[in-house]
Simulated scan of single mutants.
Amino acid sequence: MPKAYNSVFHEEIEIHMELRKEELGNEAYRHYKRTVKLFDDYLYQIGLKKKEISEFIVEEWIKEVSKGISINTVSQHVHYIRQLLLYLASCGYRCFIPKTVITRDTYIPYLYSDEELENIFMLADSLKAPHAVKNVYIENEMPMLLRLLLCCGLRVGEALNIKVGDIDFQRNLIILRVTKKYKQRLVPYNEKLADIIYRYCGAMGILTDSRAYLFPTIDKDIPLTSNTVRNYFKEILMSAGIRNDRLKKYERGACLHCFRHTFAVRSFDKNERNGIQACDSIPFLSTYLGHDSLYETEKYLKYSADYFADTIIRFEAFAGDLFPEVTFDE
């Protein structure tokens, strides 16, 4: 059986990884292990013989691993390797410890309040679009789509590509086949939403048509486009008095994708209030959202202190040892 690690530090890394496996959740450990494996492979490839890691080696590895990935992902890799190098240094080996890569968020997500959501759904339920030639079902589709985005945290494109055959009405599951980075996943939903989806499909006449899109145009074999949905949602936001013309630096403003952010924050908050620890809930939330890493989920849980102020403190306490430092411009 081949060894998991092959560099000159393979024994120390194996011991370190056993310790980390006990400390981290399954999802966090998986991503940590991937980074360590990349570093171990690099040490093996350059033929490192002496148990000493110089600044040059670390900097060259960072250059190598940074190719074709975002600064946030680079920051995550560096943060993980710092943990390994600190461990090796504690074992008596001379190791250069790189500084944490400081990243800056490109936007601050907007979170919908209870009052805003109530107003949005009231306006969606009463939407009138008499001149919608191609999108003749839009008055029925918008209320259903917005509820699906909020209750399941789906990306807009994921929701629009759902077909009736992708819905398991018996087990209350949606199979997402068209997703970001082509990673299919199962999305469970609650009984209340199940009843709404079932009645919606019946009213649309697509309940038994497995090939029909859940949100079709006049041709049930062609789904609504994201642009169409965004345009109607802009009208709803305007009617609700939710404006995006006075945004601060890095603020994204209210949009369809912010239902996903709102779902993530509310899910974390609900779990915390029900006594489910962050180390247990965050990996499952990350998987549910279809994220590649816990770092992606961490970005979703950054929000204004006006919402769930006590919850963000608890999340930061959990995330402190997992995620690199992030700073914001004033």
Rank of each mutant, 00 (worst) to 15 (best):
G290W: 02
I167E: 11
I175S: 13
Q83P: 02
G153C: 06
H257T: 07
H261C: 07
K181W: 00
M204N: 01
N72E: 10
I102D: 00
T217E: 09
E64H: 10
L237R: 15
E12H: 06
F56K: 14
D292P: 00
P109C: 04
I222L: 10
T179N: 06
F318T: 09
I81R: 09
K128L: 11
K51A: 03
D280F: 05
G68Y: 02
R211M: 09
T208W: 12
F263E: 13
V74I: 15
K302R: 15
L154C: 05
R243D: 13
L88V: 06
M238S: 11
I13V: 10
Q184A: 05
Y112G: 10
E191N: 02
L149E: 01
P324N: 12
F328A: 08
L146I: 12
G320P: 09
N6E: 14
A305R: 13
I71C: 05
D195I: 11
L301P: 10
L150E: 12
E18S: 09
F263L: 06
I97R: 02
M17W: 03
P98D: 02
R34D: 13
D245H: 11
K21F: 04
L19I: 14
V164W: 06
Y300K: 06
L38P: 00
N26Y: 08
K249P: 02
T225Y: 09
I197H: 04
L88Q: 08
L38N: 11
L149R: 01
F323D: 01
K183A: 01
K220W: 05
R314S: 12
G241C: 03
K67Q: 12
N72Q: 07
D221A: 07
P283F: 03
E272N: 13
A254W: 03
V164H: 05
L86C: 08
I196P: 01
